[in-house]
Design a protein around this nucleic acid. Structure first.
Lengths: 133, 133
DNA sequence: GTAAACCCTGGTGTGGACTCTAGGGCAAGT
DNA sequence: ACTTGCCCTAGAGTCCACACCAGGGTTTAC
């Protein structure tokens, strides 16, 4: 599949795909005889993966790291797997953060008219056990 | 409380606080006779609120919008409340997205050695019902 | 009363993640 | 054969969210 097709399929711009490749967020895409990029199955997997994790808020750094491990050979399977596990954990942490904020919002919504509130009360609502604001 | 105190309390830099104020992400902070910012109870609430929502990944745009509604008077209480509700909904959507990605990662982790996978299979794991992508 | 440690504004700098442009090659239809 | 519409690279431009000055006033500690 050519770059246009991939761009459409995943709703990205061609420029973004080229950019990702340049910073090694994607592996080097094979070229046809005219030098055009020809995305294979594996490359589409990467695009899908990268896009999902970017949307979920993963840093590009972490992803580059991961791609590098793949690029550098099949050696360190354990390392790669544990990176996946780490990434999952980071996402779970993020979910946790957001859910705290949801609680905080819910509290504000429920007490919307109550103008005596201050953020100390709200902090309470936001997080009962965590002492660092 | 002066700017240094607020910065320390919320683990932000003075620059960030001034920046937020400039782009109207915070209301105009009252000044003392020397022109120094003097943060009140309400302002601390804002800082807390903004910081939490930023950390949760809310766009600055959406937050500026919200602050504006407050700034423009006490009129539209309903509008303000519904904005809170909207923001909560956005966060819930985000949680949903991330959880999809977590599922996807879990799938990859579980099938780590299985090289016959392609992103079509993974798409299945990623999201059973959503047909886009 | 003076040095250190704050505060202010206005402006410039920075890093990240694209986005666009220029200049040129290839492909497909007419 | 020629127009249209892709593709390429290299490089410049943009926007965001700060971070970092410079130049100057103020407050606090000695």
């Amino acid at each position: 599949m050519n770059i246009e097709g991939v761009a459409k399929k995943f709703d990205l711009t061609r420029d973004t795909l080229r950019y990702w490749e340049r910073i090694e967020l994607l592996p080097a895409i094979p070229r046809n005889q005219s030098g055009y990029r020809e995305y294979g199955e594996r490359d589409l997997n990467w695009v899908f993966y990268i896009k999902a994790l970017r949307k979920a808020g993963m840093s590009i750094e972490a992803l580059v790291e991961f791609v590098k491990l793949y690029r550098d050979g099949n050696q360190n399977i354990a390392a790669r797997k544990s990176l996946l596990v780490d990434q999952r954990q980071e996402l779970l942490n993020k979910v946790n953060d957001i859910q705290k904020t949801v609680k905080y919002l819910s509290f504000k919504i429920d007490h919307f008219e109550d103008h005596t509130l201050n953020y100390e009360n709200e902090k309470l609502a936001y997080d009962q056990e965590d002492d660092q604001i």
